[in-house]
Simulated scan of single mutants.
Amino acid sequence: MKIAIGSDHGGYELKNLIKEHLLNKKLEVVDFGTESTDSCDYADYAQGVAEAVAKGDYARGILICGTGIGISIAANKVPGIRCALVGDCFSAKATTEHNDSNVLALGGRVVGPGLALEIVDIWLSATFQGGRHQKRIDKITDIESKYYK
């Protein structure tokens, strides 16, 4: 599985930990930045990762900022992206199984490293259930197509 990962300064340290974790699992990970804890804008990294996932170049994306809020909002502006801000294991599984999320957002100042790695593993290993959930995804796509022409 090919995974795009990115963060702003607030998520930089957690991003590096997650990237190392995924590489140790023999997954292909491409880092879209940032490369330091110097202040930067989360929207720049959200856009890069989200566009790469939306184009199909990557199966999934992971984004981290201080809270995960700003970076998830920015990612969700890209058509085709269903970015979920997750802070617990139940939601990590549900957002894949029910929402077919293709980008995961985490808060580097909110979620501890152990929990973050567990969330990532659960999110990546879960499978979209389709069925009754597919019609809901289709409705999201319909809303998106109304505003993005």
Rank of each mutant, 00 (worst) to 15 (best):
Ile5Gln: 09
Lys55Val: 11
His21Ile: 07
Asp8Cys: 02
Asp57Ser: 15
Ala74Arg: 05
Ala75Lys: 05
Asp41Tyr: 09
Ile71His: 10
Asn24Leu: 07
Ile18Thr: 00
Leu27Cys: 15
Ile69His: 06
Phe32Gln: 06
Phe32Asp: 04
Asp31His: 03
Ser72Tyr: 10
Gly10Ile: 10
Asp8Ile: 01
Ile3Cys: 06
Asp41Asn: 12
Val30Gln: 09
Ile18Glu: 00
Asn16Tyr: 15
Glu51Gln: 08
Leu14Tyr: 00
Asn24Tyr: 06
Val53Tyr: 12
Gly11Glu: 06
Asp31Pro: 01
Ile71Met: 03
Ile5Lys: 12
Val30Cys: 13
Leu63Cys: 02
Leu22Met: 15
Ile18Asp: 00
Asn24Phe: 04
Asp8Thr: 03
Ala74Gln: 06
Ile69Cys: 09
Ala54Leu: 14
Glu28Tyr: 13
Asp41Ser: 10
Ser72Asn: 15
Gly56His: 00
His9Tyr: 09
His21Ser: 12
Thr37Gln: 11
Ile18Lys: 01
Gly33Ser: 02
Lys55His: 07
Ile3Glu: 10
Gly70Arg: 05
Val49Ile: 06
Ile62Arg: 06
Val30Gly: 12
Cys65Arg: 07
Gly33Leu: 02
Ser39Gly: 13
Ile64His: 11
Lys55Ile: 06
Lys15Phe: 02
Lys25Gln: 14
Glu20Asp: 14
Ile3Tyr: 12
Leu23His: 15
Tyr58Met: 10
Lys55Met: 14
Leu63Gly: 01
